[in-house]
Design a protein around this nucleic acid. Structure first.
Length: 271
DNA sequence: CACGGATCCTGATGGC
DNA sequence: TGCCATCAGGATCCGT
């Protein structure tokens, strides 16, 4: 479900409501990808200072540390004043003076991890290898080009790895490469400066647009208010194998790269 | 150190 | 209330 736009839409939908709240209690369901790192009771009494995002991580700033939240493949968050008893796939509840934040994640690839302010939370291992923010000021052409020059792998997989630029998932990687006219199998270090520039613009455009639209609703994405993105992503290539390219009519192709599906137009996207 | 593959887990879908 | 294979929006870890 969540790539950067969905995570950002989630953040925007609950950050104002939870800011300033005091944590009353916290509870865990089944194990997620990583353990919380502390006993849930240790969160009690802490203040929620705000909510930021880094890549696909939600960073909840607390008075004594940082709560890192990742939605994995199937996670979603609800923030509401009254919550029913946790359901089968509800694996984390944060009860606060202003409402309950609940993580629902059927596949449990997501995580909630506490980083104490005693250990420099910003230096958390999970945040260490992340690339530049695509919607931030640091995403400039020169640095992006230099980053890609270091990689001989297919550009699609370099985007997904998140070590050069973060937040581009499987859907938006295919979409951005289509907009930029670049074949997903092209090796990253073989791209010319102008093509890298075009790709950079395409990534910004497609992600920013998706955030504006409230996240794509390819399946069942909804924000923390339970509102589904009232927008169906009009994908140019994603999941459109065999269908005509919206630009030239050529049949969209589907291939596997690193066990993930990739979609592209063999006519519009050049190696 | 850059790369490719295995791996975690549940649910939906489609072929037989 | 059939069973089985395949696939799904992520990303870390491990062997090479």
């Amino acid at each position: 479900m969540p790539e950067l736009p969905e995570v950002e839409v989630t953040r925007l939908s609950f950050a104002p409501g939870i800011r300033g709240a005091t944590i009353r209690s916290a509870s865990l369901g089944k194990p997620l990808r990583w353990p919380l790192g502390i006993a849930p009771q240790q969160l009690v009494g802490q203040q929620v200072l705000g909510v930021r995002r880094r890549g696909k991580y939600l960073l909840i700033d607390l008075s004594e540390g940082l709560l890192l939240l990742h939605l994995g493949m199937s996670g979603s968050v609800i923030f509401a004043s009254a919550q029913a008893e946790p359901g089968k796939h509800d694996h984390f509840d944060l009860h606060t003076s202003q409402g309950t934040l609940r993580l629902n994640d059927p596949r449990r690839f997501g995580a909630v991890v506490f980083a104490s302010s005693q250990d420099d939370p910003e230096a958390n291992k999970l945040l260490g290898r992340l690339g530049v923010e695509p919607l931030g000021e640091d995403f400039d052409g020169a640095a992006f080009y230099e980053g890609l020059q270091q990689r001989k792998t297919a550009i699609k997989q370099v985007l997904l790895a998140g070590e050069v630029v973060v937040g581009v998932g499987n859907i938006y990687a295919s979409e951005a490469l289509f907009i930029a006219g670049i074949r997903p199998t092209t090796r990253a270090n073989r791209l010319s400066r102008p093509r890298v520039r075009k790709l950079q613009d395409a990534i910004c455009t497609v992600l920013a647009r998706a955030v504006e639209k409230g996240g794509s609703t390819l399946r069942d994405f909804s924000n923390a208010q339970g509102e589904s993105g009232h927008f169906q992503l009009e994908a140019m290539v994603y999941a459109r194998q065999g269908e005509p390219c919206r630009q030239c009519g050529t049949a969209i192709k589907s291939i596997k790269q690193g066990q993930r599906s990739t979609f592209f137009c063999p006519q519009c996207q050049k190696p």
